[in-house]
Amino acid sequence: MTIHIKYFASLRDRLGRAEDRLPLVGEMTAAEVWATLWPEMPLPPNTLIAVNMDYAQPAQPVNDGDEVAFFPPVTGG
């Protein structure tokens, strides 16, 4: 029962790592995943969330084996 977490770009630099793993305990939302991993740090404003490579809202539930990503606004093109 594990959730895989990824961080990208400036957020990864700020956090000092690109990935985390978290045991899934009961029901959890994407926002709760962040709060569990970074209890001292509110999710930075404008942070985007993806669950299994689709954009997600903070309240989206996550399931065992899901990949949850947190990243800053995108700047491609």
Binding site: P73, T75, G76, G77
Partner: peptide
């Protein structure tokens, strides 16, 4: 759509060091 949705991030090298582009 690409500019607002596709997950890409630009990190620029400048004469005063690297910086992340924060917005389009």
């Amino acid at each position: 759509e690409l500019k607002s949705k596709a997950p890409f991030w630009k990190r620029e090298e400048t004469t005063t060091g690297p910086r992340w582009v924060t917005h389009n």
